[in-house]
C-alpha cells in the first residue's frame, strides 16, 4: 500500500493549471515519504494530456472511455472506486474545485475513508497524514489528522507552484470496465456567463471592494474616487452576491483574474478565492480595519483603518 495518486482535472480538451499544481504538491510530499506519484487521467481523446502529465509523475494511469467525454461525478466515482481499491495508494489527491468537491466527499463515503478539504500543507507521520488547511476565511489554519488509508485530500488551487517537470513517467492505459451506467445525473452543456461588455482584466488600475463597504449606498464615493484616478471598479464575492456590482466585475477564482499595475483592495479580507484572482498585480494596496486580515500578506502597502474615512481623505489629497 503505497503511492500518491493525483486526479487530473481538465476542461475544454485541456488540463487545468490546478492539475499541475496538485502534482507538484504530491511530488514534494513523495520526496518526504519515498513514494511514487501516479497521475490519473479519465477522458476521451486525451493522449496529448497524458504525455504532458508524464513529465510530472512516475506513472500516468490513463483511461479512455466515451462516458468520460464530459465530467460527471458519478462516472468518475465508479472508475475511481475501482482504481483506488485495486492500486491501494496511501494518499489520493484531488483538486479542491467545483470539479473535485463535487466528487471528493461522496467518493470518501463510498471508499470509507477520511477526507480533508482545501489542503495547503502535508506532514506524513507514522499513524497517518497531517493536513494543514485554512478556516474562518483564512484567518486561522487548522491541522487535521487523517487516520485512514488511503487518506483523501482536496488540494487548494492556485496555492502550489506548478513548475516541477523533469520526470518521464510511463503512461499506462487502463480499462475502467463498466462505467457510465445507472446514472441519475446527466451532463447537458457548459455555458459561459453572458457578457455585458465590461472587461476588468484590461484595466491598468483596479479598485476592488469587499464586505467592508457594508452597504450599497457606500459605493457611490468609492466609484467616484475610482473614476477620478482612472481605475475600474471591481469586487469580491460578497459584493457581487449582494448584486451591488455586475458579475463580470468579480475578482477571484470563480470570477476574473486581474494583473493591473495597481490594485487597491478596500474592505477586502483576502480569502484565498479572492487573492487567487489578484495576486499577480504589480502593486497591491490594502485598506482594512482588521490588522490580521489575510489581504496584508499579499499587499505591498497596507493601511489598518476604516475605508470610509481613508477614501474621502485620499480623494481630497488627489483633488
Amino acid at each position: 500500500m503505497s503511492g500518491i495518486m493525483v486526479l487530473a482535472e481538465h476542461r475544454h480538451g485541456d488540463l487545468r493549471d490546478v492539475s499541475h499544481e496538485v502534482l507538484s504538491a504530491a511530488r514534494n510530499l513523495a520526496e518526504k515519504t519515498g513514494e511514487q506519484v501516479e497521475a490519473v487521467l479519465l477522458g476521451q481523446g486525451c493522449d496529448e494530456m497524458a504525455q504532458r502529465l508524464a513529465a510530472q509523475a512516475h506513472r500516468v494511469i490513463h483511461a479512455e472511455h466515451p462516458a468520460f467525454r464530459d465530467f460527471n461525478y458519478e462516472t468518475w466515482q465508479q472508475a475511481l472506486v475501482r482504481l483506488v481499491k485495486g492500486r491501494e495508494p496511501s494518499i489520493v489527491m484531488i483538486p479542491h474545485t467545483a470539479f473535485g468537491t463535487d466528487l471528493g466527499p461522496s467518493l470518501a463515503v463510498e471508499l470509507g475513508v477520511g477526507i480533508v478539504s482545501d489542503a495547503i500543507g502535508f506532514e506524513p507521520g507514522p499513524d497517518g497524514l497531517k493536513v494543514t488547511r485554512g478556516v474562518y476565511g483564512g484567518k486561522l489554519n487548522a491541522e487535521r489528522f487523517i487516520s485512514t488509508t488511503p487518506a483523501l485530500v482536496m488540494v487548494r488551487q492556485s496555492h502550489f507552484k506548478p513548475d516541477q517537470p523533469g520526470l518521464e513517467g510511463e503512461v499506462v492505459n487502463w480499462d475502467p470496465g463498466d462505467v457510465g451506467s445507472g446514472l441519475r445525473t446527466r451532463f447537458i452543456s457548459l455555458e459561459e456567463v453572458p457578457s455585458t461588455g465590461i472587461d476588468i482584466t484590461k484595466a491598468d488600475v483596479v479598485v476592488g471592494i469587499g464586505r467592508g463597504v457594508k452597504e450599497e449606498k457606500n459605493i457611490g464615493p468609492i466609484r467616484e474616487f475610482a473614476e477620478h484616478i482612472g481605475a475600474v471598479l471591481a469586487g469580491s464575492r460578497p459584493v457581487i452576491d449582494a448584486g451591488w456590482l455586475e458579475k463580470e466585475r468579480q475578482v477571484g477564482s470563480s470570477g476574473k483574474t486581474v494583473k493591473p499595475r495597481v490594485y487597491i483592495a478596500l474592505g477586502i479580507s483576502g480569502a484565498f478565492q479572492h487573492v487567487a484572482g489578484m495576486t499577480g498585480s504589480d502593486t497591491i494596496i490594502a485598506v482594512n480595519k482588521d490588522p490580521h486580515a489575510p489581504i496584508f500578506a499579499v499587499a505591498h502597502y497596507g493601511i489598518v483603518d476604516d475605508l470610509h474615512k481613508v477614501v474621502p481623505a485620499l480623494r481630497e489629497k488627489l483633488a
Binding site: 470518501a108 475513508v113 477520511g114 477526507i115 480533508v116 497531517k130 485554512g134 478556516v135 483564512g138 484567518k139 486561522l140 489554519n141 487548522a142 491541522e143 487535521r144 489528522f145 487523517i146 487516520s147 485512514t148 490594502a286 490580521h292 489575510p294 496584508f296 500578506a297 499587499a299 505591498h300 502597502y301 497596507g302
Partner: peptide, 16 residues
Amino acid sequence: RTRLERLYVPEVVSAA
C-alpha cells in the same frame, strides 16, 4: 475519520 489537532493564527509573512 479525521481529527482536528489544533487551530492557530497563520504567520503572516508580509512584506507590506
